[in-house]
Amino acid sequence: MAIEQSRRDFLGMAFGAVSAIGGIFALGAMKATWDPLPSVMAAGFTTVDLSPMKPGEFRTVTWRGKPIFIIRKDGTDLKKCDKTDVKVGGGDYLVRIGLCTHLGCIPAWEPQNKKFKCACHGGEFDACGTNIFGPPPRPFDIPPFKIEGTKLVLGEEGPEYKKIVGKA
C-alpha cells in the first residue's frame, strides 16, 4: 500500500513538473507572438531636414505612426525654454510627440493663443510643451532624436537628446 502510494505520488509529481515547464514555454511563445514584429521595430526611424523651416512655422511629421510637433521659435515671441528646446543650425525648435499625455488624442496648435488645445478632454500645453490646464499629467513627451547637420533623426538617442532628458 505504502509503496503503491509513493509510486502514484511520483507519477503525479513527474506530470506536474512536465506540464509546469511546458506551460511556461507555451506562455513565453504566446507572449512573444503578440510582440511587435522585427519589421515594425526596425522601421522606427524618421529623418527631417529643419533648414527650410521659417521662424514661427509649425510642422507635423510622422514617426512610428505618431505625430511629431515641430515649431521654429527663434525670431518670434513664442516662449523659449533653454533646457528642453532643440537647437539646430542656429534655430530654436520645439520637438515633441504630439499626443496628449492624458489619453493620447492629438491636440491642435492655436498660433493666435500660442498654445496647444486638446479637443478630447480640454487639456492645454504651451509653446514649451508644458501642460498648463486640464487632465494631462505631464508635458508632451520628447521623442528620441539625433542631430546630423541641419537634420533631425527621430528614433536614435543622440547626445543632445540625452542631455535634455537627463540621461547624459
Partner: peptide, 17 residues
C-alpha cells in the same frame, strides 16, 4: 500598451489581433 497593440500605435497588427 505597445505589446497589446503590436506596434507603437494602433495599427494593422492591432486590428487583426
Amino acid at each position: 500598451v505597445i505589446w497589446i497593440r503590436g506596434n507603437f500605435y494602433v495599427a494593422d497588427s492591432t486590428l487583426t489581433r
